[in-house]
């Protein structure tokens, strides 16, 4: 199991457009990725390819989330996803 902690950079939080961009990126990956708030147990983690799950997570600007994935290419995939969350997606 690979794991990354990342701080949400988008000013609006992980909502709307930023959530859409992120969910699409996850959906394109061949592996399953979960997302949870930093202080939540791993078993409560949600499907990161679901925009509805991402929005209901309610991660605000500056919140720390944990991404988890397993299998081949998990580390590379998570590194790429971390970069997306570290960008202010709403500013583009």
């Amino acid at each position: 199991m690979s794991e990354r902690k990342v701080t949400i950079a988008s000013r609006v939080g992980l909502h709307a457009r930023p959530a859409g961009i992120f969910a699409e990126a996850v959906a394109e990956l061949p592996i399953e990725v979960t997302i949870a708030m930093e202080d939540e147990p791993a078993e409560d983690a949600m499907d990161a390819s679901s925009i509805l799950s991402l929005m209901s997570l309610g991660a605000a600007h500056g919140d720390v989330v944990v991404l988890r994935a397993e299998g081949e290419g998990a580390d590379e995939a998570l590194d790429a996803l971390v970069k997306i969350l570290e960008t202010d997606l709403d500013a583009e």
Binding site: A16, G20, S50, I51
Partner: peptide, 16 residues
Amino acid sequence: KAVLEATALMAADPLL
């Protein structure tokens, strides 16, 4: 555009 992009994703959302 933003509204439509978000609803397009919802149509294929795994949770739903």
